[in-house]
Amino acid sequence: MNNLNVKFGLRNMFLDGVRPVSELVQHVNTNGSNAYIDALGLKHKELNDLLRETALKGVTSITVQNVFGQRYIGTRLYLPNLAKKMEIKIAPNPGNDLGAFLNGHRLIVYGNAQDGAGNTMDDGEIIIHGRAGDIVAMSMRGGKIFIRDNVGYRAAIHMKEYTGKVPALVIGGTAQDFFGEYMAGGRVILLGLNLSKNERHKAHYIGTGMHGGVIYLRGRVEEYQLGKEVGIRALDSHDWEIVGQYVSEFSSHFGFDPAEILQEKFQKLLPVSTRPYGKIYAY
């Protein structure tokens, strides 16, 4: 439809116009092992360039202000030789894939996170003083995520564990559909603190396809909200120990009273089989 002899070619929305770190120095303020970054107007890669650069200079604690949607915060910090893991405080609104592939650092968000927080996270901690979007903790393999408020669709999808490495996700509010879908390991605690008395959790298809790990769910849920691969059990003393520990950690982050949280009824959701699809084939 365009008869001019011009090809549009390709524009790179991520990398076009990315400025070198040397042009961004005014965004960083370093003070010994602490640094402050003003993320206003920084592109995704620019902010992560600065974080990596700052980390390599030996800074271990960074506060990043004016974050509006910058993605992959923490992802570029795979630095096996770093003496000490970093702590990064972020406000108000980090973008998608916060802490994707995170390698042991600690991210604290004062505000809301978006989709993909903790995607394929390896180790470390993400603490969100707010809510998070869809697929939180997708394929997470280690570390801990604490979220004060709600999460979107498919939280904890395909979370997995191996031997000593057991990831944990604690959610203060409630979740949307397909919560714990495909879960293959790890511990998920859904507290429902913002539900009113007797209000059900909202999610449907909870734990559909689940074949590992455990979900501890506080508050009401109807059987038909669960996927057919999950069974409900009562908590035993070992479970209470686990729940107690995470709830107290959660409470200390966000200023709740753990005893009050633990008073309410908890249920344990377990996969009925580690091989949910073992029988659907004809050989």
Binding site: G69, G95, N96, N112, Y153
Partner: peptide
């Protein structure tokens, strides 16, 4: 089954719809 994102926001008389929350907050 919400395969695409949407976030809504409100402030006084303004109501927002967006693919990402950050765009609203910005």
């Amino acid at each position: 089954i919400r395969l695409r994102p949407i976030t809504a926001g409100a402030k006084d008389d303004l109501v927002f719809l967006s693919s990402e929350e950050a765009a609203i907050r910005y």
